[in-house]
Design a protein around this nucleic acid. Structure first.
Lengths: 353, 353
DNA sequence: TTGAAAGCGCTAACAT
DNA sequence: ATGTTAGCGCTTTCAA
């Protein structure tokens, strides 16, 4: 930010800086013991209605906010669920978060979000930081973690749910889809519809394990039909329509024989669609398209791009459900594996006319 | 989720459920006092290299994870910053979060996100919950809060930064843009480019104060030119391209004389663009368009939709900077008001050819 | 139904 | 450079 585009001014300070209130303050104000105040505020044990009313009134009028830090230390109960995801700008993860919130809102648990930017080192740091708050559970994306992360999770003795991906070995519970299978199914459908000259466009996959697995499943299924991917195009950084356009232009210039483009996500697929349409290419007659994620925004384009729904909300919901059910400390359901069905959406771009 | 699309199976339980380790365990394992272990782990005070090495080795080999709850209680220092936003699916807030993270990553502070779903009651709950963890600061969206929320914030004696919006009275610090001004400037530009029959498309604004303020500024500036908004179209729920299309179709059917459509965000504006283009309408000759937010994805369309950049990342950065600077407990900078400049991006849809 | 005492795991403050 | 002591503000446990 340059200095010339902001205006700074000063308000009067309306805050009153005093010592935070404690149970004791409420105790004195209401003329009841701290213990009874504590009981009222947590709805625990037997308290007479009269006392309860007195205490609540005092607490409210003072503006008392309980100190969860002290409470958590004393009770060794923390109503926090650590949620560790690679990114917030990916559209995918906000959807997962929505599913998680839907379920946790009906429980005393609260999600706390940590973002790793797809870096295993950062994941390790974030995890360490979150575990040091002794959460009631951990939900984290993916099955690939550093050895240290795995060690921390195993010895934390809290429920751990790895989400998004089921292709691999889990630490405890897993909820996700098989990305290999998603890739395979898409490949089969593409071949079935008669496309043969297939190009792939996606992220550089060294870090993106799920994209890699989809690609592996994809090529594997093609290989079984005796087909190979003709050309590939990779990109760095975030997805955007603009990148989808550029990549599509480049790959088609290099390999004009292509009759199908498989994109590793819907955003770049939509960009590809726009490029093809403006280039006067017949979609899906001349060239077919497919993306991945089942993103809602695909509905707005003139053609509905084929995609595969990654069941993001459901993944969030199931993961949260597992944590909520186990937050009583029971070991019931330990090591559950929930594999959801990736749903193919044919749309308009995967049917030869 | 229906039962038939998931597969459940059970892993072996690899976790070992034992008592969490304490400082004392590390103290015993390394043969140093708890206090010295604590110093090593926090890089505080003078510790000999030999001792430091011993302690670190013991801590690492045991897999010790410090208990921040106890630490926070003892030191009354909590390295958490409460960030309270209306939604994660809005695209706007992930950008703000990115700005916040950029700054906090260089500090000991960590953001904790709470989501209100645009509900003041929910905001109150989330705020209460977060304040009960005694965070080092609070960043929250908007200037409109319930009386109880305001009271809590005022008596919390932590830095509070209200973000996004500067049109109103702040509790402590503010970082944002003037949405009234953003609306005014857009109106002036539209008139300047010769458009006269102007329609507005946006959310039902009872809850969305910022959209409302933009609209107020917009109509006010138009009124000064003797112009009134010809027609309006509102929608509920999340934004989408599809909604932008539908709304545009409806408003144009009702008011075919319109020559400009002002949308309350870029997503529905882009949907509008797609609709107009497919209807064979000349944009921006016959009808001009503008959105709001300066969203990146606008770059992918065949015409760049006019918009106004809401400086989302900068807002996040500045807010985090204020908290970070004040987290030493000083009152320096109390009540700062930072008004950023909304930047008009003319694009292609706000120029008569 | 209410209260008193002990202590959760750490760190501040003060020794040594 | 290292150790000792006394809490932080609650909840657990036990007593009344």
């Amino acid at each position: 930010m340059s200095g010339d585009d902001k205006v700074i001014s000063i308000n009067k300070n309306t805050g009153t800086a005093k010592r935070p209130l404690t149970l004791k303050d409420v105790s004195i104000a209401s003329g009841v013991s701290e213990m009874t105040v504590s009981r009222v505020l947590r709805n625990r044990g037997d308290v007479s209605d009269a006392t309860r009313a007195k205490v609540l009134k005092a607490a409210k009028s003072l503006g008392y906010v309980p100190n969860k830090i002290a409470g958590a230390l004393a009770s060794s109960r923390v109503n926090l669920v650590a949620v560790i995801i690679p990114s917030l700008s990916n559209m995918v993860f906000p959807d997962v978060m929505t599913g998680i919130s839907e379920v946790l809102d009906d429980s005393p648990l609260q999600p706390v979000v940590g973002v790793t930017n797809y870096s295993p080192e950062r994941e390790e740091q974030v995890l360490f930081e979150m575990l040091s708050w002794r959460p009631s559970g951990v939900i984290l994306a993916g099955l690939e973690h550093s050895d240290a992360s795995v060690a921390m999770l195993k010895s934390a003795s809290v429920p751990v749910v790895e989400i998004m991906d089921t292709d691999g070995e889990a630490i405890d519970a897993v909820v996700g889809i098989s990305h290999r299978r998603a890739g395979r199914e898409m490949a089969r459908q593409i071949v079935k519809m008669g496309y043969r000259q297939i190009g792939f466009l996606g992220t550089k996959m060294s870090m993106d394990h799920r994209a890699r697995k989809r690609f592996e499943g994809f090529t594997e299924a093609l290989a079984r039909e005796g087909i190979e991917v003709v050309d590939q195009e990779f990109y760095d950084g975030g997805s955007s329509l603009a990148k989808g356009r550029e990549m599509s232009a480049r790959i088609l210039e290099r390999s004009p024989e292509l009759d199908f483009l498989y994109y590793s996500n819907d955003m770049i697929a939509a960009g590809g669609l726009l490029h093809l349409q403006e280039s006067g290419i017949d979609v899906p007659g001349q060239i077919g398209l497919a993306g991945f994620n089942g993103s809602e925004f695909l509905e707005g384009f003139s053609l509905q791009v084929a995609t595969m729904d990654a069941a993001r909300r459901d993944i969030g919901r199931e993961a949260a459900r597992i944590i909520a059910e186990r937050s009583d400390g029971s070991l019931q359901g330990t090591g559950q594996k929930i594999e959801l069905e990736p749903r193919l959406q044919m749309g308009d771009t995967l049917r030869r006319r």
